[in-house]
Design a protein around this nucleic acid. Structure first.
Lengths: 217, 217, 217, 217
DNA sequence: GATGAATGAGCCTTCATTCAT
DNA sequence: GATGAATGAAGGCTCATTCAT
C-alpha cells in the first residue's frame, strides 16, 4: 500500500517548495499568454502544471499572490538577463548600449509566451499597482542606467539632442516591436525586430552604430 | 410621482438606438480604462451609463459584441482623426508625417481613458482575433500610408536607411509613449510625449524636422 | 403621411381583436411544438406571428393567459371535431365509436404541431391546473360519451368485459399512438396509427369491428 | 462550533462522486415531477438535495448533462426492472408478457415522481434528441422483445391479428394509463391501471389471459 | 392599436477559496 | 504536502412585463 517502488507512487513524490512554485509560475505565464489575463484561472494553471486545483492556493495563498510572484519572476529574469549581458560587454557606452539592446531579444527573454505575459500585465489596469510594486524599481534602475549611458555617449560623440528622450525612445521602441510581435497577424521575425531598434540607435549615434548592425567604434 | 425632473424617471426616457449605443460604448471605454479588461462587466458598464444591465444586451446582444463595437468605435475615431489631420496638411511628405505624428497626440484621441482602452485591447490575448477583425484593415492602411511618406521623404532628402523600418519606429514610438503614459507612476505630459516622437523624426530626417519641434522645409 | 393608399401602410392595418388573438395562438402552438414548453417565449411567438414583442401582452395580458387561451383553443377545436363527426354518424353505437376513433386522426386534428402541443401540455406539471381548468370538462364529457357508447355496444353485442375499462383503453391507445408519432425517430404513419386503435376495437367488439378497418354491422 | 451533529456542518461532509450524483439525480426527478421541465432549475435541484448549486455543476458540468444523466438513470432503472421480472418468469410467452405488464406497475417504477418525470421528458420537444440518444436503444430492445413474445403467443394460440400492432397497443396502453395517473384530477389507482392493461391482453389472447387478472394457461 | 426601448428578476455558469480527508 | 469535494459570490444572458411614444 505504501510501497515506494510502486510506480503509481512516483508522480506523487513531493517536490520542494521552490520547485513547485516555479512549476506553477511557468504554467501561469503560459496560461496568461494563451488565454489572456481575463481568462487565466487557477484551475487552468493547475491543470497545465499537472497539479491539483487546491495546490496553487496552498503554495501562493491566493490568485493575486500567484500573479504577483509571476510578475516578480519575469521582472527578475529580465533584470538578470541584461545584467549578465552588461557583465560581458566592453566599457564603452556604445558597447553597453548595444549589449542592452541585444539582450532584449535574447532567445530566453524574447519568447512568445513571455512577451504575451508582459503585454498582459501592461494592458491590465487592474495590475498596474501590482506592476508598480513589483517592477517599478527594476524599471527605474534600467532607465537610470540607459539614461546615463546615452548621456555619456552623447558627450563622447558630440551628438546633439536630449539623452533622456533618446534613452526613452530606445526603450519604447523595444516595447513597441514586442507589441508588434504579439499583435500583428504576420509579424516580422526577431532579427528584424532587433534591426529596427538598432536603426534607432544608428540614427541617434551614427558614428557609433553602423547601418549593418555593427558597432563602428 | 410624475415629476419629469425626478432623476429616477430619466433612465426610462427613450433614446434612439444610435444614441444609446454610443452612450454604452463610452461607458465601456471608461470602465475598461479604470478596471481593466478582466474586470469589465456588463453590470459596471450599465451602472456607469446610468442604465439597466439588460439594456446593454438588448442593444448589443452580448458582451463580446459590445466590446467589438467599442473597438470599432475607437478604431474609426482614430482613423477619422488622422484623416482629418491629413486633409489640412500640406502636400510635402514632411508636412504629412508631422501631421500624422501630431494627430496621435490630439486632445480628443490622447485621452487617459482611450489610451488605457487601447492598451487593454492590445494586452489581452483573448481580444487578439477581435482586434485583427476590427482594426486590422485600419492599421494596415495607416502603415501603408506612413511607409509611402517615409519612402518619399527619404528620396527627396537623400537620406540613408530603410523606409519601412523608419515608419515602423515612428509608429511604435507613439505606441510606446502611450504605454508610458499608462504604465508609469509619474509619467511625463503629452507635450513631452509628442516631443519624444518628434525626436525620432528629427534623427531620421534632420534637415526637415528641426530640434525645436518645427518643420524646417 | 396618412395616405391610406400608400402600400407601406397596408401591413399596419389594424386587425380585429379576434383575428390577432387567433394569429398569436397559432404562432404559440407552432412555437411550443418546435421549441417545447421551456423555450417558448413571447418574443418568439410574436416573431413567428410577424408582430411586435409588446403586442402579445397587449392582447393576452400575460404569458400565462396566452397559454391558457392556446389550450382553450386546442380543446375547443378537438371537441368541435368529434362533435361534427358524431353529427354525421349513424345512430348505432358501433357507428358512433368508429366515428370518434376516426375523428382523432382527422388531418385537421392530427397535425404534428398540434400533437406536439398536446404532449407539451400533458407533460408539463406546471400546466396541470391549467389543463384541468381548461380541458377538464371537455375531457369528462368525451369520456362519459365513450363510456356510454361502449356500455350500449356491450349490451347489444353480448360482449363480456368492463365498459369503462374498454372506453379507457380506446382513449389511451389514441393518446399513446399520438405520443409515438411524436417520440419515435421513424414513426409509422397516420393510417397505421388509426389501424392500431381500430385493432383494439376489433379485439373488444369482434362482431362489429372487422379486421379490415370496416364496420360489420 | 465543531459539533459534528450540527446540521450546518453536514453538507460539508464529503461523499463519493457516485453517491452525490445519485443524490442529485433523485432530487432532479423530484423537481421535474413537481415543477415541470420548464421550471426545473439547478438552484431548486440543489436546494432539494440540501447542497449548494455550485455542486451540481461540479458533478455534472451543466444542467443539460444533469438532465441527460437523470434520463439515463430512469431508463436504466426501467430496463433493470423488467429484466429482473423476466428472469423470474416462466418460459411461456404468456407468462413473459404478463411479467412485463406487471413490471410496469411495480411500486419502485410506478411512482408519482417517476411517472411525472417520464411524462415531462416525453412532452418536451427540447428533450426529444436527448430522449432518443439516451432511451432509444432501450426502447427498441423492449419493443423487439414484446413483438417477439406476441408473435410466439399468436402462433401458439392460433389467434388472428398483427403481432406488432398488438405489442404496440400493450405498450401504449401502459403509457396511456400512466398519463392518466398524471393528468386526471381524481385518477384510479395502480391496481385499476394494471387491470386496464390486462384487459387489453385478455381481449387479444382470451384463452391465456383470464378476465380476473389470472393466467389461464 | 401598435411599437420597441427599458427594466429587473431569475437562471446557468465560472471560479476563487475553504477544508475534510 | 496533496487532493478534490464543497461553497457562494459574481458574471453573462434571457425574458416577462411595463410604458413612452
Amino acid at each position: 500500500m505504501d510501497d515506494i517502488t510502486d510506480p503509481a507512487n512516483l508522480p506523487r513524490r513531493k517536490l520542494s517548495r521552490e520547485e513547485r512554485r516555479l512549476q506553477l509560475i511557468e504554467a501561469t505565464i503560459s496560461v496568461i499568454a494563451e488565454n489572456g489575463f481575463a481568462r487565466t484561472t487557477l484551475g487552468e494553471v493547475a491543470r497545465r502544471a499537472g497539479l491539483s486545483h487546491g495546490l496553487a492556493n496552498f503554495h501562493f495563498e491566493s490568485k493575486e499572490k500567484l500573479l504577483a510572484a509571476t510578475l516578480d519572476h519575469l521582472s527578475d529574469e529580465y533584470r538578470a538577463n541584461w545584467q549578465a549581458a552588461l557583465a560581458v560587454a566592453g566599457p564603452h557606452p556604445a558597447d553597453r548600449i548595444a549589449a542592452l539592446i541585444a539582450a532584449d531579444f535574447a532567445p530566453v527573454i524574447c519568447t512568445p509566451d513571455r512577451l504575451a505575459a508582459w503585454c498582459a500585465f501592461w494592458g491590465e489596469a487592474q495590475s498596474r499597482p501590482l506592476y508598480q510594486a513589483h517592477c517599478g524599481s527594476n524599471d527605474a534602475e534600467y532607465q537610470r542606467l540607459l539614461d546615463g549611458l546615452c548621456r555619456e555617449l552623447l558627450a563622447l560623440g558630440g551628438y546633439p539632442g536630449d539623452a533622456v528622450r533618446m534613452a526613452r525612445v530606445l526603450r519604447v521602441t523595444t516595447e513597441g516591436v514586442w507589441l508588434d510581435l504579439m499583435t500583428m497577424q504576420a509579424p516580422y521575425d526577431r532579427d528584424e525586430a532587433l534591426a529596427t531598434v538598432w536603426a534607432v540607435a544608428a540614427a541617434f549615434f551614427p558614428r557609433h552604430f553602423g547601418p549593418e548592425g555593427r558597432l563602428t567604434v
